[in-house]
């Protein structure tokens, strides 16, 4: 009898261990993957940003050596690269210019995107899935190709200039490609779906009778829009703006394909610092500061998303 009970207990025990093991593996595998390939690399960037450049490959110093001990390692770190970033006006000009370009193009995307989202939400119900798909479709096509498409349009002999000359709006070709204007156009174009979708979601959720109620209480169409529609789509507007601003800030492809040599953006600077100058510590320091700049909008964005979710419930 005793042995039988033990066998049952043993089976039970084994099942419990199996279950625990499975749970452990389920959590551990993705966890370790992210630790090794996301967090650790990040710590390395931080470390390198505090190191000195050296000619030897890998081009940074000191390399971490357990024997040396942590104390010695820390003693070698310094903020020289960050000082360098402050002293050389190229960097802070690049940060400021990225900030300006990202903010302006976010505003432009909002101006272009809001009417589209509004039109979609007002469109007959049976059209909406199609319109929605038309907005999402470009998102699935290659980003690079969509930026490239504008290269042909904006160039001096391009489609836009041909049109301007033909229609008499301009007497000679305008230099648009390789200017900051082209970068604005590129950002608005590629990030437009990110702006449209959250605003559309907010507008579509809105109860139409709210507009009727506002009109019933004496609002004109325009004031009902201003007093009811805009405040109620605020969450979508904020989400859309962050979704455009955050990636635009670190954008590399658009300024390097459409922008000119005077278009300073920090993503491009980082790329050049890394690939052309091979100055890894400075590139790392540039990355660390870019991330610090982005922490504020990222946190605000998360908070806005949480608030939106709560208000939905």
């Amino acid at each position: 009898m005793g042995r039988h009970r033990l066998a049952v207990l043993d089976g039970h025990w084994r099942r419990l261990v199996g279950e625990l093991m499975r749970r452990f593996l389920l959590i551990a595998i993705p966890y370790i993957w992210l630790l090794a390939l996301f967090l650790v690399p990040f710590v390395i960037v931080l470390k390198i940003s505090l190191s000195d450049a050296a000619i030897a490959r890998p081009p940074y110093f000191p390399q971490f050596d357990w024997a040396e001990g942590i104390r010695a390692f820390i003693a070698e770190l310094d903020f020289e690269n960050f000082l360098w970033l402050v002293e050389d006006d190229l960097y802070w000009k690049a940060y400021l210019s990225s900030l300006r370009i990202a903010l302006t193009s976010t505003a432009l995307t909002l101006i272009v995107g809001y009417p589209i989202a509004y039109g979609m939400a007002r469109a007959p119900e049976e059209w909406r899935p199609t319109l929605m798909m038309l907005v999402i479709l470009p998102f699935w096509t290659s980003f690079l190709i969509r930026v490239y498409a504008w290269k042909g349009i904006l160039s001096n002999e391009g489609f836009l200039n041909q049109f301007l000359l033909w229609s008499g709006l301009a007497s000679e070709p305008l230099q648009i490609l390789n200017t900051t204007t082209a970068v604005y156009i590129g950002i608005v174009y590629t990030y437009l779906p990110f702006m449209i979708l959250p605003i559309y979601a907010a507008l579509e959720r809105m109860d139409d009778s709210l507009i009727e109620a506002a009109e019933d209480l004496g609002c004109s169409r325009l004031s009902a829009f201003w007093l009811v529609t805009i405040p109620l789509s605020k969450g979508g507007i904020i989400a859309g703006c962050f979704l455009v601003f955050i990636p635009a800030m670190g954008e590399f492809v658009i300024p390097s394909l459409l922008g000119g040599s005077d278009t300073l953006m920090i993503g491009k600077v980082l790329w050049e610092e890394f690939f052309s100058n091979r100055d890894w510590p400075v590139a790392s320091a540039v990355a660390v500061i870019l991330l610090l700049i982005l922490v504020v909008p990222i946190v605000l964005f998360q908070r806005n998303q949480q608030k939106e979710q709560e208000s939905e419930e």
């Binding site: 109860d207 009778s209 009727e212 506002a214 405040p231």
Partner: peptide, 11 residues
């Protein structure tokens, strides 16, 4: 008019 959904402005 008093709306069926009440149409109170949530904001």
């Amino acid at each position: 008019m008093m709306f069926q959904s009440y149409a109170l402005f949530p904001h």
